[in-house]
């Protein structure tokens, strides 16, 4: 079982590509599994998970921890995630900075939080409880939003406060920043400039649907040019961060996704040169 530190470029593991990964080695450094797809008793999903895990480092990414809800934590679910993590030995366990239902409802959607002090305290406290159960730092991902509560706080301030207070880590979804920026009319570079980059452990890239006056995070098409540019901007400032492409619908053959991942590799290596120069300039100025 490969368990080296997370680095390089990954893809989301999808059943359509199970046999490709088992047939021959693929140019993918690591794989992200959708946690919820493997919280099943056994059978095919677990069989393929175990076989592919023998060949690739993995990270786990969930959608149902309901981190931001004002309902009590679903401890049974979190213990199931822990049991799966014990089996998979992932390099990271992540879920989303959002809520997925309240008053017992399961909305199966990533709903937006109001950016308030009350929510910061509430969510940070819950993340700490989850981390205690998982016995590891949780990695939380910023979500795409379509409505933003009118509060004096900005999303990047909210995210920063939570990760600092909870002492957790970040999965920066560059596409989600772009989508939310378009929908809430802010400069996505301000987000990138402000977020505590030393806590970012992983980057997500994905495609979305652009309806001119708004965008929807659909993960059903290639990454667009604007998001590539924002990714370049991120790496120039943050340096090397493990990056992957998410595709959840309209899934192409694996080689198409690997080619798309090559674009990320190229942009990253170009941006890292500039990042090094920037670092050099800063050192020079400091001396």
């Amino acid at each position: 079982m490969k368990t080296k530190a997370l680095s390089g470029f990954g893809l989301g593991l999808r059943p359509e590509h199970y046999l490709d990964f088992l047939r021959e080695p693929q140019r993918v450094d690591w794989l992200e599994i959708l946690t919820d797809n493997y919280l099943v008793p056994g059978g095919k999903p677990i069989y393929y998970l175990d076989r592919i895990r023998e060949q690739y480092p993995m990270v786990m990414h969930g959608v149902a921890m309901n981190i931001g809800s004002s309902d009590p934590l679903d401890l049974e679910y979190i213990h199931e995630v822990k049991a799966l993590a014990d089996r998979v030995q992932p390099l990271l366990v992540s879920d989303h900075l959002c809520w997925t239902g309240v008053k017992g409802a399961r909305m199966h959607d990533l709903l937006p939080l109001p950016y308030t002090e009350e929510a910061i305290i509430h969510v940070a406290d819950r993340i700490q409880n989850i981390q205690d159960i998982l016995q590891r730092r949780l990695v939380i991902e910023n979500v795409s939003t379509y409505l933003q509560a009118a509060t004096p706080m900005q999303e990047w301030e909210f995210v920063t406060a939570i990760v600092e207070q909870a002492d957790c880590e970040l999965l920066l979804d560059v596409n989600n920043i772009y989508v939310s920026a378009r929908n809430s009319n802010f400069d996505p570079r301000t987000y990138i400039d402000t977020i505590p980059m030393h806590r970012v452990r992983q980057i997500h890239l994905a495609g979305h649907s652009d309806y001119m006056d708004h965008c929807i995070d659909t993960h059903d098409q290639p990454v667009c040019d604007d998001v590539w540019e924002l990714y370049r901007y991120t790496i120039e400032r943050a340096g090397d961060i493990p990056t992957m492409i998410e595709r959840d619908d309209n899934i192409p053959p694996l080689n198409e996704l690997i080619s798309e991942l090559d674009i990320a590799r190229n942009i990253s290596s170009q941006a890292l040169l500039l990042h090094s120069n920037n670092l050099g300039d800063r050192c020079y100025e400091a001396s």
Binding site: S69, S70, W99, G101, V102, K103, A105, M107, D109, L111, P112, L113, P114, T116, E118, A119, H122, A149
Partner: peptide, 14 residues
């Protein structure tokens, strides 16, 4: 409060 806000938002979605 957060709980009221979420309950109301959820009602709007449902």
């Amino acid at each position: 409060k957060l709980r009221e806000w979420q309950a109301e938002f959820q009602n709007l979605v449902l």
